[in-house]
Amino acid sequence: MKLGAYPAFTATAFQARLAYRNQVWSSVFGELVATFAFIAVWTAAFADRGSVDGVSLPEMVTYVLIAGPLLQWNTTPFIREVGDAIRTGNVTAYLLKPLHYPGLLLFNQLGNNAFEQVTITLPVAIVVALSVGLLPPASFAHGALFLAYWAVSWSMLFLIATVVSLLAFWVLTAFALDWFLRGIMAVASGAIMPFWFMPAPLATILGNLPFAWVSYYPSAVYLGKLDIPAAFLHLALGLAWLAALGGFLAWLWSRASRRLVVQGG
């Protein structure tokens, strides 16, 4: 199948989501409520202090929005769906078609996420910007680097979720793997708590794991908490993690698909 055909899956996924209009409205509402909850948590934590560890409250509000709604997406349906398709052997239907299954997943998920960014994150960001206020990037260079980090963040979460769902082929269930991942992501991605508030040893360990590139590093770069050379260095480290995970995924997939073909579904 031609590479040019894959974006069609993105468009289809985007359009399919539009059919569930009530889902859109309630997701916006739910996300809005959760975002304001985190803003309230940080407001309460800062109490009347202007800044803590060199970070101000307005910076934390911006962090909440970037680290949460913008960079995190709900991997649960993805992992359960892919995990079940692989375990039940339904995935063999795709193996017969002239397309690359992980490629199909990538473009499909891209459509889903584009949809969520436009219909959920954007309205939430506008409401937060107008009511509480959002900060611009620390500098033009930080803003430009953030775009690269955004791409790394998305790819990292996609690779992690896909690797986890492929593991369902050999170990545990997609259900259990998803819950394990949720627990890890809550701490290690920096979605809730930025590493700069953590005890130094913990921050060092988490800062070297791939999960940190999903929320922590991109948000920190946007806010200028990493200087430009450090931002470039960590971008390179992130890309190295991507390459490693991508290689691992390719290896897992080749083993899984070989076994699926041998089993005959």
């Binding site: 539009l18 059919a19 209009r21 409205w25």
Partner: peptide, 13 residues
């Protein structure tokens, strides 16, 4: 009622 196409889906919102 459902409306066809992308424009229709937006309208359906």
């Amino acid at each position: 009622k459902r409306f066809a196409g992308l424009r229709g889906a937006l309208k359906g919102l």
